[in-house]
Simulated scan of single mutants.
Amino acid sequence: MRKATAVATFVAAPAVALALPAAGASAATAEQAVVSILHGVPDLTVDVYANGEEVVGDFAPGTLTDPLVLPAGEYDLDVYPAGADPASAEPAISAQDVAVPAGVNATVVAHLSAEGVPVLTPFVNTPAVLDAGQAELTVRHVAAAPAVDVRAGGQPVLTGLTNPNEASTTVPAGTVSADAVLTGTDQVAVGPADVTLREGTETVVYAWGSAADSNLALATQTVDASSSAPSGVAAGEAGTAEAGLPWWVAAAGAVALAGAAVPALRTRAQRTRA
């Protein structure tokens, strides 16, 4: 099993011109990064801003955006209730100086902390090198809920996972019924949901929502190691994924990004093979 317990530090260039394309692309160059965003805060439709520019509007819970290829650098991310005026409103969630290194494939998740506070957590998508017939299952705990064990086909495959960490394992490709139970018990916290694990890909399952509010749900994302382009759908008890979601709106002109060494993307250190 590999777990995200460390935060990597990166140094961005002193100034990077941000020109956001209106459509996503499949892979990053040496000067770019691939970034997706998952909305995992229940009952809150939001507008997402990067460096003062609206990039996603009317973003509904449970939605995973298409991937975007964008320049590497640092980004100030702010999440406002849908329709709010950033000039006068306070963001519901914000993260300043988020470093996005060149060549990385990342997913930024707006979610609840274990205590139920809205936060932003960026994860690196790093598919494993897989044998024929194998797939990688990664689970990210981004719900206001206790530690969970993840089961595939009723059998525990990842145990003791806490918010906001992740763990991965290699399993035979195919469709499995996945759920999460409270660690050390058979009490189902979220699921079950059928998850298709495609050969040669990393399937990321997100447990999001709030246990106290009984709205825990699952969302899935598939990362193809050959193209590094993630795609995703929502599953479980709530949320839907919209294909062709209107993506990051092209910024008017260029936005200068200040460069500094900052905590950035979560990484994983260990893998197990099933």
Rank of each mutant, 00 (worst) to 15 (best):
L182S: 07
A178M: 14
V205W: 02
G209R: 12
G160L: 01
V148Q: 01
T196H: 14
T203R: 11
P122R: 05
D149C: 07
V148I: 13
E237C: 02
A144P: 03
R151G: 00
A135G: 08
G133W: 11
R151P: 03
G160T: 01
A189L: 15
L218T: 04
T203V: 13
S228E: 10
G133L: 10
V150E: 00
V195E: 00
W208E: 04
S177Q: 12
L161W: 00
D186I: 11
T159M: 12
P192M: 10
D179Q: 13
A241S: 15
R198V: 12
P146W: 04
P127H: 08
V124Q: 14
T175M: 08
A173L: 12
L182F: 08
T183G: 05
V205G: 04
H141Q: 08
V150C: 02
L130R: 04
V188F: 14
G153K: 10
T185I: 08
A145Q: 08
R140S: 11
A229L: 13
V150I: 05
D179I: 04
G184C: 01
L197D: 03
G133D: 00
G236N: 07
T170W: 07
E237R: 06
G239C: 04
P192H: 00
Q155N: 05
S227P: 13
G191Q: 09
G153I: 03
E136S: 05
S231W: 11
A241H: 12
F123Q: 02
P146Y: 06
D131I: 06
A234L: 02
T196I: 10
